[in-house]
């Protein structure tokens, strides 16, 4: 039988590294002994277009491996809101980039508008916005231990980018810890 099921979506545009960070999270959860199904939708272009990476996490088997009711939603582009919002569970955790995804529909979700891409830029590269988002997601959802995700990032990162990725992940944990009032939408 299907165990308790948690669904996570990371949505944005092609080229933001959403699938990569979903694969890192999937690896961390698999290392935790959880059953994971990780899927994605992307456009046939290397940059741009709606892109999403979903995870279905379960203590038991995963029967249907695609997202149907999302518990944790990360939004790194306004483009991802429309196709993702109808799947949101009541009271879901929503983490949105305040610059790239400023407008959220009304809802009873627990929303966190965070300076994800700005933090990445301050670290020297907008390319690590995915790592900042990953840190914030793990911090706010508690989906796995910090050590687990750090281990997964280490394993999947080329050496030349390891410090930058780990710094970005840590920055994600930091901005998640700062008390930021829910943005009025």
């Amino acid at each position: 039988m299907q165990g308790a099921r948690t669904e996570i979506r990371i949505g944005g545009t092609g080229g933001q590294g959403l699938i990569l960070c979903a694969k890192m999270l999937a690896a961390a959860l698999a290392a935790d002994g959880r059953r994971v199904a990780q899927s994605q939708t992307y456009e046939p272009t290397s940059r741009g277009g709606f892109c999403k990476a979903d995870l279905v996490v379960s203590s038991g088997e995963v029967d249907f491996p695609l997202a149907t009711a999302v518990d944790h939603l990360v939004l790194l582009d306004q483009l991802a809101v429309k196709p993702s919002w109808p799947l949101l569970k009541e009271g879901a955790l929503v983490i949105a980039d305040e610059r790239l995804c400023p407008k959220l529909p009304p809802g009873d979700d627990s929303r966190h508008h965070l300076p994800i891409s700005r933090t990445a830029l301050e670290l020297g590269s907008e390319r690590v916005a995915n790592m900042v988002a990953l840190g914030a997601l793990v911090a706010l959802s508690g989906i796995c231990a910090r050590g687990r995700i750090e281990e997964a990032v280490r394993k999947a990162t080329p050496r030349g980018f390891l410090h930058l990725n780990l710094d970005a992940l840590a920055a994600g944990f930091s901005i998640a810890a700062e008390p930021i009032p829910a943005a009025a939408s």
């Binding site: 694969k23 999937a26 698999a30 959880r34 059953r35 994971v36 199904a37 990780q38 899927s39 994605q40 995963v62 491996p65 695609l66």
Partner: peptide, 9 residues
């Protein structure tokens, strides 16, 4: 394509 690019434990 779903099953092809789906990652599962």
């Amino acid at each position: 394509q779903v099953i092809a690019q789906l990652s599962e434990t």
